[in-house]
Design a protein around this nucleic acid. Structure first.
Lengths: 274, 274
DNA sequence: TTGCTCCTCACGTCACGTGAGGTGGC
DNA sequence: TTGCTCCTCACGTCACGTGAGGTGGC
């Protein structure tokens, strides 16, 4: 006499007893984690107590974050094998947690809009410009330029911005910058642009001679390729007709690759062609 | 004169400058995060410096774990909006980290195979059985039974297993369990099964009367439904022909729902039908 | 007869990775 | 002419959720 064949649960009952969804059970069948049980005359799947036990163990493992494709082996693993696998899973969890902690740090650095992908030194520099009274439009132009540079030369940028900031201790340079900011809205044939070009050329010449005399390596344009220079120019200059005109005037005087906004006097002097 | 229209980068160049993959850029186009740029005569996409800047900012946000569907709004957000969004993102990161920490705790509890989905009290009980010298097969049967019970009645299980363990202080009960373990491999018509049935009936009767006299609430079978009982029976009994026979003998004497392995004397007395 | 459960597809999720098959540019 | 880049599909990832459309059981 075949006594107590055991209950034959429907998928819903099995799911309820095991604490999972019916869809999850079907999914386990689909990926081969749990064998398909027999069907009754209506085509319904009928589950045994053993199936429920397996489902409970599967649930325990998935709740612990174990990927399904590892659970199959774990359910039948020996003690040592199991312990080793569990240790490895814990390693992965730790690594994932570390990754998220790093995300949190990154997010915290985003806390200010300027912080987007910019090193803190550059953010400090932009704040300095704010303190000096420059407008947000000017600062946004600076930010975008430094964004490109930072993406290209993350290591060089820190020393570079330092020098740039120091250059703002010079009242003449600050004055030139203010004039530049004001010029943004001028017409492209405004006569004041000639005076501004004169002022800037004097600063270029002075800065170049200072660098030569101090014998310090030129801080301007460390390994920046021509495409990047073109990008910087395009981004900062092209927005204002007056600035475009100013660039033309300076180019007529032999100053190519003009982009005064990035780096301390980053420009190519009259004899530097290429 | 349209001066300095800016560089027109290919997708590979833009990707390189921004530090992303070409596939990522195409994906951003597909989801509408970045507008498709113009094409050149060969059908190649051509990118501007502005695109590179946007890509750099997108990269910064994705690296911080911000989902793409939020980045679009963030790129053009104002300061307050941006700060609020960043704060919320950080909350989500923290929640995710907490979730993983919980996973680690769960994984640690899995460290032993028995721990799979079982409360520590049950694990301790199983270890106690080991210490008493019971074999792994017997313990696996116990484990699976308690697995089902724990899934059904997580709250009741702790007190229940306590009583069960205490019952093992009684040498007679231990002796009966040892006999039960030995009987697993007997033939289904082994004459010793009659003696074992006698022994177990005496224990059932004694336990029942003790519970009555002490006036303590019956610890057996708190709100276990009949399907669960059937599952327990099927799992533990049906594996051994001798056990099946033993169940029959006890049923002949009026003891239904026999499942001595789960709970202290969890069984239905002769007059308890239903 | 009305709900409830069961059945089998099959798309959607998230941010791309990875070929597949073909063409333009140096 | 040979690599290298570009192009457009389109499947795969992970563990299911969520209908869509239809049928059996109390």
């Amino acid at each position: 006499v075949a006594r107590r064949p055991g209950p034959r649960l429907t998928i819903g009952q099995a799911a309820s007893y095991a604490g999972v969804t019916t869809r999850a059970i079907r999914h386990y069948h689909q990926v081969g984690l749990l064998a398909e049980p027999g069907r009754d005359s209506s085509g319904y799947r009928r589950y045994s107590a053993r199936d429920v036990i397996d489902l409970i163990r599967i649930r325990a493992l998935t709740k612990a974050g174990v990927p399904l494709n590892r659970i199959g082996a774990l359910l039948t693993a020996g003690l040592d094998e199991f312990a080793a696998a569990v240790a490895e899973i814990d390693q992965q969890l730790q690594a994932e947690i570390r990754r998220l902690e790093e995300h949190r740090v990154a997010v915290a650095q985003l806390a200010t809009v300027d912080g987007l992908a910019l090193p803190t030194e550059v953010v400090a520099y932009l704040d300095h410009l704010r303190a000096l009274g420059f407008g947000e439009r000017m600062i946004a132009i600076e930010r975008d330029g430094w964004l490109i540079i930072s993406a290209q030369l993350p290591d060089a940028v820190v020393g570079w911005i330092e020098a740039k900031r120091e250059s703002f201790d010079d009242p003449q340079i600050v004055a030139a910058y203010r004039a530049l900011e004001a010029a943004f809205d001028w017409g492209s044939n405004d006569p004041r642009l000639d005076d501004l070009a004169d002022l800037m050329e004097r600063l270029f010449v002075r800065t170049a001679s200072e660098q030569d005399s101090i014998q310090q390596p030129p801080v301007h344009a460390p390994e920046i390729d021509s495409t990047t220079v073109a990008m910087l120019d395009a981004e900062s200059i092209a927005r204002s007709p007056a600035w475009v005109r100013l660039g033309e005037l300076l180019e007529q005087r032999g100053w190519h690759g003009w982009n005064d906004l990035e780096g301390p006097m980053k420009h190519v002097p009259p004899n530097g062609e290429g």
